[in-house]
């Protein structure tokens, strides 16, 4: 565990907390993509199956349980409790266009052809693109509430911090995982446009509004 890794995990946790607070306090999930949340739940469930096979540390198991349970809670809030506020018409990204290529890619490019390993690889690939329905929703409505922008910023920062962690681990421990590094870079690049808007607009007190 190094500082970048810890900061990345905390940023990830913060993103999830911001999201739940936003939904709970405003009693609304307007502006949020339920499809991205379904993809994230799928990511955590397929990645953390090793919860039952391998014990790494209390920290590791605790975070895995938190990520799985909070993502399921978010889906429950969006699709059941606050369903009336869910922006279904704007959330029209076709997630099968992301899931199917990730399934194929994980079957072809993986480090070991076993069930757990292929599912882990699938989750890494899927995570890198899971935010696309949310970014698509923002671009479709042309704006995002500040709290949604903070959520996206924390979520995007998490993988960017992981990249620093991977660089550190490569030099300090000789440890590297090419699949995760490649997908993590793709994931971070997808946020770049948003990061730019966040720094130039939201941090200056303006609403995140896309140019017409």
């Amino acid at each position: 565990m190094n500082l970048f890794r810890l900061a990345g995990d905390l940023s990830h946790l913060l993103a999830i907390i911001i999201l739940l607070i936003k939904i709970w306090k405003t009693r609304s999930c307007a502006g949020l993509s339920g499809k991205s949340q379904i993809l994230f739940a799928l990511v955590y469930i397929t990645r953390y199956l090793d919860l039952v096979t391998t014990y790494i540390s209390l920290y590791n198991s605790f975070m895995k349980v938190i990520f799985i349970s909070t993502s399921l809670a978010t889906i429950y809030l969006m699709y059941s409790k606050f369903r009336a506020t869910y922006d279904k018409n704007h959330d029209s990204f076709r997630i099968e266009f992301l899931i199917i290529p990730c399934v194929i890619l994980s079957l072809v490019i993986n480090s070991n052809f076993t069930v757990l390993e292929v599912l882990w690889t699938f989750s890494i690939y899927l995570e890198s693109v899971a935010i696309l329905p949310q970014l698509f929703l923002v671009s479709k409505t042309g704006e995002a509430e500040s709290i949604t922008s903070h959520y996206l910023f924390a979520l995007g920062s998490y993988r960017a911090l992981y990249i620093l962690n991977w660089i550190y681990r490569y030099y300090a421990e000789g440890h590297y995982e090419l699949i995760a590094i490649f997908a993590g870079c793709v994931q971070t690049i997808l946020y770049c446009d948003f990061f730019y808007l966040y720094v130039t607009k939201v941090l200056k007190g303006k609403k995140l509004q896309l140019p017409a």
Binding site: R5, T54, I56, N60, S111, E177
Partner: peptide, 10 residues
């Protein structure tokens, strides 16, 4: 035989 690196990251 390939030895898998333990996945300690999240």
């Amino acid at each position: 035989e390939l030895k898998l690196v333990q996945k300690d990251e999240l």
